[in-house]
């Protein structure tokens, strides 16, 4: 198991380094002088050269990448041009909100999708199955931000049960935070639930078709017990992958949802950074998102190996 984890860890690290190279190279590809783009054409030569030094543009690209990577390892993401504060600090302030949003949405999605998917698979042949399939297909086609707009109209503007946007801050207490995040979490989670319902159903149908399940059924085991003990356990491996996938989906999806609900998370930070040509901030945030995706897939792989020992040796 340890060897497997180490192997996967190395792969993940290589992926992160490659991702950082992509992020670094993107800014390298900026047409023209980034310093001039940031400061505009009226900038004095002194200001330009000062900014070039601050951005590290006065050293060759490879060396610059090396330095950047070295600082990255120490958790230094550079300094935001717009806010004149370390990118790492800015990111830390916003990260919690985006993570809470993503986890909440993943929770909503999972707790809806697994029971619905299982039900649809087990009740195959009844009206419930095609209905679930249709609903999940339709749900997967609904843009989350559009759903967010509808939720605002209904629950914030018409019924006035919940705030329409904005975030009071964590220190305002768990109730206020919950109220602020409920609609965004639903907007993000419901679409994902639709996707996951279909996957759960498909996975379970596959497992139910397997011989050992048939045998267990033939031996007279009750339906609940068959599904609980045998089918679900064996479907676990695929479900974990699915969970990891949906976690990254909602994490990325939160970028748009933050904009709909005016939530001060990482996504809005990135959008404002783009507007202000704040390259270090864009790099930092994008790399954080990419790194999270790599990390989640690493965790998924490891738990995969833990759930199904055969994979470790594959």
């Amino acid at each position: 198991m340890t060897a497997f984890v180490v192997r996967r860890l190395i792969t993940a690290l290589v992926s992160i380094v490659l991702a950082s190279a992509v992020v670094f190279a993107a800014v390298l590809a900026v047409p023209g002088d980034p310093a001039a783009i940031i400061l505009g054409v009226t900038a004095s030569p002194e200001a330009l050269s000062a900014l070039r030094t601050q951005l590290g543009l006065d050293v060759p690209p490879v060396e610059r990448y090396g330095r950047w990577l070295a600082r990255l390892v120490r958790g230094d993401l550079g300094t935001s041009l717009q806010f004149q504060r370390p990118v790492a600090d800015l990111v830390r302030d916003r990260l919690m909100l985006s993570v809470a949003l993503a986890l909440g949405a993943a929770l909503v999605a999972t707790s809806l999708a697994i029971p619905l998917g299982v039900l649809a698979a087990v009740r195959r042949g009844t009206w419930l199955d095609p209905l679930t399939v249709l609903a999940s297909q339709l749900g997967a086609a609904v843009p989350s931000f559009w759903l967010g707009l509808l939720l605002i109209i209904l629950f914030a503007v018409e019924l006035r049960w919940l705030p329409a946007g904005g975030f009071p801050g964590w220190e305002a207490g768990p109730v206020a935070a919950f109220r602020a995040l409920l609609l965004p979490v639903l907007a993000l989670g419901l679409g994902q639930a639709a996707v996951m319902t279909r996957m759960t159903r498909a996975v379970l149908l596959d497992v139910l078709r397997q011989d050992y399940v048939r045998t267990a059924r033939a031996k007279g085991l009750g339906s609940t017990s068959v599904i609980g003990k045998h089918a679900l356990r064996n479907a676990m491996v695929t479900l974990v992958t699915m969970l990891g996938l949906s976690l990254t989906n909602v994490f990325i999806g939160s970028i748009v949802i933050e904009q709909v609900f005016a939530l001060p998370g990482l996504g809005r930070l990135a959008l404002s950074a783009i507007g202000n040509r704040d390259f270090p901030l864009v790099q930092g945030v994008v790399l954080l998102y990419a790194g999270t995706i790599v990390f989640v897939s690493f965790v998924v792989d490891v738990s995969y190996g833990w759930l199904d020992p055969r994979i470790r040796y594959a």
Binding site: S15, A19, V22, V23, A26, V27, T248, N249, I252, G253, I255, V256, A270, L271, A273, I274, R277, F279, V282, V285, V286, Y289, A290, G291, I293, V294
Partner: peptide, 13 residues
């Protein structure tokens, strides 16, 4: 590691 929206953020910057 770079879904469409993330890639678009990077390219738009």
């Amino acid at each position: 590691a770079f879904p469409a929206i993330l890639m678009a953020l990077l390219l738009a910057a």
